[in-house]
């Protein structure tokens, strides 16, 4: 292909905006006919990293903590005190802290994978991953409630609002059941998924849109490409915050659901 022909081809190249298909990654390798994709590997990597970090941090158990131990303890006490103890309450929180703690750091790392160089793919921008995690949380809070109140006692606690009698209950019981048992895991999963998905899409859009304007645009449009890249950097920092906030909200809502499930009847 001559140089002229190449430039014609490049000029004819159209801008392809990123869409949901951007997230369909090809399998890295396949085991027994099942393709193993990048987000699957990231889940395993995150589990290993979180375990490894906290294992190393607490191995010494020094009375005067070193730098690593101090970081580990600060992370643990953040989840234990400001999420678990404040929400679930002094009486029950110790039982559920390990789950919330592991969940928080697993989520945080998986979300930050969206911004860490060379990985740059938030694991939970695949909806199935978020559904699996929300399903696990659904099991935890429902089983916690059932082991405390018994099966029917728990259903009564969740579905029958306190201090309400009469025919209005016919309307309220299905609504409460729907909102407390059915919809909760769905919104939990969708919130995480859609935030990661939309944030990553936005970052990609600014990155490749800016590149397209810089390379293909006329001289007058090129500054817009630079502006797009400045915004790309700023939005990446916003994403770091959103990724942390989503991990926090997910665990906070989990703690609230558990605290509602194990609460005493009023």
């Amino acid at each position: 292909m001559s140089l002229a022909a190449a430039s014609v081809v490049r000029a004819a190249e159209e801008f392809v905006p990123p869409g949901p298909s951007t997230f369909d990654l090809p399998p890295v390798f396949s085991v027994a006919g099942i393709g193993v994709t990048k987000p699957m590997l990231q889940l395993v990597l995150a589990a290993i990293l979180v375990f490894g970090f906290f294992y190393l941090a607490v191995r010494q158990r020094a009375m005067v903590p070193g730098r690593l131990q101090y970081m580990g303890e600060a992370g643990y006490s953040f989840v234990r005190n400001s999420i678990s103890r404040d929400i679930i309450g002094q009486h029950d929180f110790a039982r559920y802290t390990p789950y919330l703690f592991a969940l928080f750091f697993f989520l945080l790392l998986n979300n930050w994978f969206g911004s860490i160089p060379f990985i740059q793919f938030p694991t939970f921008s695949r909806a199935s991953m978020a559904y699996a995690l929300a399903g696990l949380s659904w099991l935890v809070y429902n089983l916690a409630g059932m082991s405390r109140h018994g099966f029917f006692g728990y259903l009564k606690l969740q579905c029958v609002p306190a201090n309400i009698t009469g025919p209005i209950l016919v309307l309220l019981i299905p609504l409460e059941f729907f909102s407390n048992i059915v919809v909760r895991p769905v919104t939990l999963a969708l919130r995480l998924f859609a935030n990661m998905f939309a944030g990553h899409l936005l970052v990609i859009l600014f990155a490749i849109g800016g590149e397209y304007l810089l390379l293909e645009g006329s001289l007058l449009v090129k500054p817009a490409g630079i502006l797009a890249w400045v915004l790309f950097i700023l939005i990446s920092f916003l994403e770091l915050l959103v990724q942390f906030l989503q991990a926090y909200v997910f665990v906070l809502l989990n703690a609230m659901y558990i605290s509602g499930a194990v609460a005493d009847e009023h």
Partner: peptide, 27 residues
């Protein structure tokens, strides 16, 4: 502050759920 914070985050999450359902349906 510590008591208000969790209530505010809960309200934020509930209001945000509407926008989230919207973006899912838009796609």
């Amino acid at each position: 502050q510590s008591r208000l914070q969790s209530i505010a985050i809960l309200g934020f999450a509930l209001a945000e759920a509407l926008a989230i359902i919207g973006i899912a349906l838009a796609f």
